[in-house]
Amino acid sequence: MRIADKFRELKAKNEKALIVYVCAGDPSSEDTGKYVHALVKGGADIVELGLPFSDPVADGPTIQAASDRSLEAGMNPDVYFELAASIKEQVPLVCMTYYNLIFRRGVETFVKDCAASGITGIIVPDLPIEEAEDILKACKAHGVDMIFMVTPVTDRDRMQKIFSKGSGFLYIVSRLGVTGARADVARSTKEILEKVNTTLPRAVGFGISNGKQAAEVIAAGADAVIVGSAFVNIIASQDNVEERLEQLSRELKTGCSGQ
């Protein structure tokens, strides 16, 4: 499913989007399939499926540990695409990974494999627009959205360039730092949303872990919230995982609806 179709569908229902992240293969491909099912059942609208890299510089300790577990269990791009293809939930799947894995497979091949396995968006946290010509070309050819990030230190000129290159949604990093659950998000979200003037759906991530924060982010004007580390923490605990994922997903989705 394409990302734009999902946002259109939500708009018709007057809903905001919940975008969730899980690291594929943590602790196994089979588990990831079940987790995605639970998350979507809870209300997740878009699923970011992380393809783990050995040196994830943009991620905090939570997601690095998940990446290590997944790699240890044998995750690699071949297995990853099989897993993606096996997910039948009716939500857009987004691949989040680091550029070396894409470069190594061949940019064109990687994007083609994404499209073939039902992935309709790609996020590459270590690929700024300056280095993205090749992947943008491949994405265009294969009908895949390339999603870029903006941050509190991105100035207006740069933002305009980023808006013009990206599609799907705009990933707004609400505060400086790496991924990971944090306490306060409302103020920084408001500040950055005031600077972001785009027709793309505005999805805010980094630090959101509960329904109250999700509600605050939506109230500040976002079209979607992105939650990763809070789910990864649940998975890491290996305690009643599916039920708790579904529960948190529901709580966040309720927050997105402003309730």
Binding site: V57, A58, Y99, P125, D126, L127, P128, E130, E131, F148, M149, V150, T151, V153, T154, D155, R158, I162, V173, L176
Partner: peptide, 12 residues
């Protein structure tokens, strides 16, 4: 060469 870094570092 190049600059393969998170967006947040580009201004720096």
């Amino acid at each position: 060469g190049g600059q393969f870094v998170p967006e947040v570092l580009m201004p720096a």
